[in-house]
Structures are given as structure tokens and as C-alpha cells.
Amino acid sequence: MTNQVGLYEKKYPANWVVMQNRILQAFYEMTLDEKRLLLLASSVVRLIDATEKDTIEITAKAFAEACNIQVDSAYTQLKDASETMMRRFFSYRNERGSRVNVQWVIRSIYEDGYVSLCFTDEVLLMLKVFDENNPFTKYKKEDVLKLKGEYSIDIYHLAKKHEAMSSWTMSLEEIREELALSKSYERINNLKVESSTQALKK
């Protein structure tokens, strides 16, 4: 794994977000700040070849600068996001077809000005292993972290995942299903238009 991570580091430096495509289905219920926290942590996980024992530290200052928010606000947003993420879990089917529930993080500590997270092995896999069996999407952090809309990061990820195609269309129903949108989004004008516009321009 070490040699692979060395290759990833050269190919995808710290200012790039790289994650498996299946992570989109796993984190759609997260708040905007939880997603921001995960995106910031993703490159650290990748570059140090993190295990469940490794703590990933994100400072309030780095969070504020990356997301273009005030530092005072970042302290509270970072604390709330880390505490909420601690209660999150997602599910998948294992090779025997059994449903497996997995927490995102196994430990979350908020210190004065930064948060420390320890991710589970399943999450670390989605943030470190990229190959033909684990399709992935990559983009620069600065292009996505300043997005403000509730679903802006999700739509951005979708757009980047399909950008190599000469054309790409999705029906409203497909978008609703992909992002697990509520019934209130049955009408197209209820989607966050500004979010999709920002995402597709990148």
C-alpha cells in the first residue's frame, strides 16, 4: 500500500480531493459543514496512508480559509460538524449479502481551535484506493469548498464524475434518486439552481 500511496501523492497533491464515487451515495445526508470537513480530511488521509489509529487534524483556521468563512464562525461550525459526523453511519452489502452498518468515525475530539478524527477502515478505503475496481473522482479543493448551497457539493461531484463524457444528461427523477432528495424536490424549480450552475461551470 505504501508504494501506491507514494504514487497517489505524486499524481494527486494535497490541494486535490480524490475519493471513490461510491462515497457520494454514502454522504448525501451529511450537512454542508460535515462534507467540507470530510473533503479537507481526504487529502491528509491519502497522503499519510492513514489507519484507524491515525488522527486527522483539521484546524478552525484552515477550515475558515478553505470555506471562505469567518474564523469565529468556523470554530462553532467545525465543532458541530465533528460531533454530528460521530453519530453518522452508512450501510452496504458484504460478499454474503448481509447488510453491514458502518460508522464514519470511531473517535472525534474537539480541542482549542482544531478537531481530531479517526476514520473507520471502510471510509479510509474510499479515500485511499483508486483503481478500475474502485472508480473515483478528483477535483481541486478550492473549486468546491466555497460552494454554499445545501446540495452544491453533491451536484459538483456528479458533474465532475461525468466531465469526460462528450455530453451528459440526467432526468429530475435520476437526480432525486442519486442525491436521495425529499419529495419537496419533485418540481425542477425547487432544486438549488445556483448550486447546479456553479457546479457545472467548473
Score class of each variant (00 low, 15 high):
residue 2 T to H: 03
residue 3 N to L: 08
residue 4 Q to I: 14
residue 5 V to E: 04
residue 6 G to P: 00
residue 7 L to M: 07
residue 7 L to T: 07
residue 12 Y to Q: 06
residue 12 Y to N: 08
residue 13 P to V: 08
residue 14 A to Q: 07
residue 16 W to D: 01
residue 17 V to H: 09
residue 18 V to W: 04
residue 19 M to C: 11
residue 21 N to T: 12
residue 21 N to Q: 14
residue 22 R to C: 08
residue 26 A to D: 15
residue 29 E to C: 03
residue 29 E to Y: 07
residue 30 M to K: 11
residue 31 T to W: 00
residue 36 R to S: 04
residue 37 L to N: 00
residue 38 L to A: 04
residue 39 L to I: 14
residue 39 L to Q: 01
residue 39 L to E: 01
residue 41 A to G: 15
residue 41 A to K: 07
residue 43 S to C: 14
residue 44 V to P: 01
residue 44 V to W: 01
residue 45 V to L: 03
residue 48 I to M: 14
residue 48 I to E: 09
residue 52 E to T: 08
residue 56 I to F: 08
residue 59 T to V: 07
residue 61 K to G: 00
residue 61 K to S: 08
residue 63 F to H: 05
residue 69 I to N: 00
residue 70 Q to N: 12
residue 72 D to I: 06
residue 73 S to L: 10
residue 76 T to Y: 11
residue 80 D to V: 07
residue 80 D to R: 15
residue 81 A to H: 10
residue 86 M to L: 15
residue 87 R to L: 15
residue 87 R to Y: 10
residue 88 R to W: 09
residue 90 F to W: 15
residue 91 S to A: 12
residue 94 N to I: 09
residue 95 E to N: 10
residue 95 E to K: 14
residue 99 R to F: 00
residue 100 V to E: 10
residue 101 N to P: 00
residue 101 N to K: 13
residue 106 I to S: 14
residue 108 S to A: 11
residue 110 Y to C: 12
residue 111 E to K: 11
residue 112 D to K: 12
residue 113 G to M: 03
residue 114 Y to D: 07
residue 117 L to P: 09
residue 122 E to T: 13
residue 124 L to I: 15
residue 125 L to S: 12
residue 126 M to G: 05
residue 126 M to F: 11
residue 128 K to S: 13
residue 128 K to R: 15
residue 129 V to C: 02
residue 130 F to Q: 02
residue 130 F to R: 05
residue 130 F to L: 04
residue 130 F to T: 05
residue 131 D to A: 07
residue 134 N to A: 12
residue 134 N to I: 03
residue 136 F to Q: 07
residue 136 F to M: 04
residue 136 F to C: 06
residue 136 F to E: 06
residue 139 Y to Q: 03
residue 139 Y to H: 10
residue 140 K to P: 04
residue 141 K to Y: 05
residue 142 E to T: 13
residue 143 D to W: 05
residue 143 D to Y: 10
residue 145 L to C: 06
residue 147 L to Q: 11
residue 148 K to C: 06
residue 148 K to E: 12
residue 150 E to C: 02
residue 151 Y to G: 00
residue 151 Y to K: 12
residue 151 Y to P: 00
residue 152 S to C: 02
residue 152 S to D: 13
residue 155 I to D: 04
residue 156 Y to E: 04
residue 157 H to A: 14
residue 157 H to P: 00
residue 159 A to F: 08
residue 161 K to I: 02
residue 161 K to Q: 15
residue 162 H to T: 07
residue 165 M to L: 15
residue 167 S to Q: 10
residue 168 W to R: 04
residue 169 T to H: 04
residue 170 M to H: 05
residue 172 L to F: 05
residue 172 L to M: 01
residue 175 I to M: 12
residue 176 R to F: 03
residue 178 E to M: 05
residue 178 E to G: 03
residue 180 A to G: 03
residue 182 S to C: 03
residue 184 S to L: 03
residue 185 Y to I: 00
residue 185 Y to P: 01
residue 186 E to Y: 11
residue 187 R to E: 11
residue 188 I to S: 08
residue 191 L to D: 03
residue 192 K to I: 06
residue 193 V to G: 09
residue 196 S to A: 13
residue 199 A to R: 09
residue 199 A to Q: 06
residue 201 K to S: 12
